[in-house]
């Protein structure tokens, strides 16, 4: 645990503060103020926030749809397995899937072009740039939401619905006065988890965009593998530090929300 989590993290962060000779320096950290790096952080932030919100809303809707399905039934097993595959197994293969779907010769691209006369790439091919990441990211965010949010929705106590009915409440009162307030911490917690997931995701972006480094993980890749920028080897460490700071804020919020969510699940 210590060896494989703390040591690498400390090394990753530590290298942000030393120069090539090993002396302490603020120079590499100062590189975080570089416009290119700031742009990458802004891009990562926007991409993660947008896909997390869309993924959380669509995923929560799917969870609601799944609520009535028997837990041991075939529908639930299929959805559980599919979600597991798409949320975590996707990565590189999702990139291939979207090249086949909305790539230049992709199925949807060709259908839209030949049957409807709509050229989705009229303003240039955006699949291999930042906008191209949105759809693949949503594609793995929704299943992750199903995985993380469904247990919370399932834990809703049926007695509350009965108590609500006994006291003369209708469906709307049940959802707005009971279910939503109880579920809110779980929902927001899952939302933050989705944001963190997109922010740290690397494989899909790495497989899709071979040139340019528009988001932070890709900047780290080029900083790690680049041989052209001499004297910038420790930039990877500085970028890593920046990512950890963002993740720290997000995950602190997540932790607070989880504590609140647990209040109703005791």
């Amino acid at each position: 645990m210590l060896l494989f989590l703390l040591v690498p993290t400390l090394i990753a962060v530590g290298t942000g503060f030393v120069d090539e000779t090993g002396a302490f320096t603020w120079d590499t950290v100062a590189a975080l103020g570089n416009p290119v790096v700031l742009d990458a952080f802004a891009n990562s932030f926007g991409l993660s926030a947008f896909t997390a919100v869309v993924g959380a809303v669509v995923g929560a809707l799917a969870c609601y749809g799944l609520l009535g399905a028997p837990e041991d039934g075939p529908l639930r097993s299929v959805v559980d397995s599919l979600s597991g595959v798409l949320a975590q197994f996707g990565g590189v293969m999702l990139a291939f899937a979207f090249v086949a779907t909305i790539g230049i010769q992709g199925l949807i691209t060709v259908i839209l072009r030949d049957s409807f006369g709509v050229d989705i790439f009229a303003d240039g091919v955006w699949l291999y740039e930042l906008p191209g990441l949105v759809l693949p990211y949503i594609y793995f965010q929704v299943p992750l939401m199903i995985i993380t949010f469904l247990p919370a929705l399932q834990a809703l106590n049926p007695h509350w619905a009965e108590a609500n009915a006994t006291l003369g409440g209708n469906r709307a009162t049940y959802w707005f006065r009971i279910a939503f307030p109880v579920l809110a911490p779980s929902f927001l917690g899952s939302l933050l988890l989705l944001f963190a997931n997109a922010f740290s995701s690397y494989a899909t972006a790495a497989a899709l965009t071979s040139q340019g480094s528009q988001i932070v993980p890709l900047q780290i890749r080029s900083a790690l593998t680049s041989e052209t920028l001499l004297g910038r080897e420790n930039l990877a460490g500085a970028l890593a530090l920046g990512m950890i700071l963002v993740m720290f804020v997000v995950m602190s919020g997540y932790s607070v929300l989880q504590a609140r969510a647990a209040r109703w699940q005791r």
Binding site: P8, S200, M243
Partner: peptide, 26 residues
């Protein structure tokens, strides 16, 4: 419990791409 939760959730705050920067020497 809070400590356990913190430790277990910690790896998600440390993206694989960051972890790999430090894992290489390990």
């Amino acid at each position: 419990r809070r400590l356990m939760e913190f430790v277990c959730i910690l790896p998600i705050s440390i993206p694989a791409i960051v972890l790999v920067v430090g894992l290489a020497p390990v």
